[in-house]
Design a protein around this nucleic acid. Structure first.
Lengths: 241, 241
DNA sequence: ATACAGCTTTTCGTATGCAAAAAGCACTTC
DNA sequence: GAAGTGCTTTTTGCATACGAAAAGCTGTAT
């Protein structure tokens, strides 16, 4: 049934359009395991410090040890678990110091990201940002923490993507996810201010003002960092949500 | 046919019967394999785009496929190989665009690193920097490219370490190694200027002048980036190295 | 009662086996 | 002679098996 339109108005590359679209790839199991384990770690089902036994995880997930091992090793290089030689995997326990270092790096990367975004943003890009900004504002009203965190992540990811630097985007993705892991359990305050700063950022990007966008983002990131620290020292950790 | 020796089996070297590259036994094998493969990639024994067959590498290194697989996967997450599903590993082929993005990120990270170093440097730290600086100047005289590259890497790593931000240091380590991979094959010019800038940087750090250290490092990194680009449009630059 | 030593158990690290997907080859057909 | 098709080969992905090292336990001696 190869009724290829050979004589008619058929563009000779009728298949090339379809060729660009890769058919469903049999997603490697290790990737699925990686995602599953990461989810379990982030939502604290697997607590920091907990010993992860390969055989247990394998049985729990219904796979063999092999893909579990591979996933654990990638989780290690991404900083989610510590792989102690001959002893196994342990969920990474974030220290105060490490959290601050991550926040510092994040600040630097995001600042640069914002500058790039301001330089490269198209009209469509700005439109997307405004949409995400709006979604964030709405989530703010629902007081749904999880949704709020996701909206925040989406906006930052979008800014990074607009910067057109893939290396930078991936790095920010890794760092941000870990920061959120540390930050989420205490991420009650600061929502209102945070999204005001986001609005300011989007405006700067829309204006193509790289300097200002970078400055706003820097202030934003440092503010987050400060909030993280404030939460540690004072005993007022149970301030009004 | 179960008369297999229970111990380690001897490889039947097919790629290089003369010198079988066995990896060290006691340590975690995957790490040794990772190092071995990375070395082979960096020195171009394994060329960009080349298809890496697990079985071949395994036999070549005298180990089984398992540690090779694990090493390849970590090499992927670090950006050295591309792992195409159900198709295998290919040595990553750096594009012009990607090189520039890496250089850009490196610039940002190193700039921050220099600032931190200036803020944290002790007398001992400065002493070490001056020693590395001197080693670089000497390597400059020998015109030994490899040694020069290493001296450069050592100095930058030392600055990163002085900054006391482990997360940042690791990131810089990853990025710098890849940059050097792209840069080394064309790393002829610019040595003299580069080490003059290094001297300036060390001085700024010794003075504890974070602002200046950051500025110098930024200039230094951007200069490298520029040199990389100039190298692409060959005849534009007639300046003597 | 406590501390040490030797044994047992658990769990990792590595090797091997097997099935499925992809690539390559040769054949057939027009 | 060229293109398409089915088969063979290669290589990955996942599962399982086995040896080794570390942790835990028990029993004994001080």
């Amino acid at each position: 049934m190869t009724s290829l339109p050979s004589g008619r108005r058929a563009p000779r590359g009728s298949l090339s359009a379809a060729a660009t679209r890769r058919v469903e790839r049999p997603a490697p199991l290790r990737q699925a395991v990686y995602d599953a384990l990461l989810e379990l770690i982030i939502n604290r089902t697997l607590a920091p410090g907990q010993h992860l036994v390969e055989a247990e995880l394998a049985e729990y997930l219904g796979v063999s040890r092999q893909p579990v091992r591979e996933a654990l090793q990638r989780l290690q290089t991404d900083g989610w678990v510590d792989l102690r030689p001959a002893q196994g995997a342990f969920v990474h326990t974030p220290t105060e110091e490490e959290a601050d270092q991550l926040l510092a790096v994040r600040s630097v990367l995001e600042t640069y990201s914002a500058k790039l975004a301001a330089e490269h943003a198209t009209a469509a890009d700005v439109k997307l940002l405004r949409k995400l900004q709006k979604a964030g504002e709405e989530a703010l009203g629902t007081a749904n923490v999880e949704r709020l965190v996701k909206a925040n992540a989406d906006l930052h990811a979008a800014v990074a993507a607009i910067g057109r630097n893939k290396v930078l985007s991936e790095m920010i993705g890794l760092v941000d996810r870990r920061v959120r892991w540390y930050y989420t359990p205490i991420a009650r305050p600061r929502s209102r201010d945070s999204w005001n700063e986001h609005a300011e950022l989007v405006t700067a990007i829309a204006d193509g003002d790289a300097e200002r966008a970078g400055e706003v983002m820097h202030r934003h990131a440092e503010q987050t960092r400060q909030t993280y620290h404030d939460r540690k020292s004072p005993e007022s950790s149970t301030k009004s949500d």
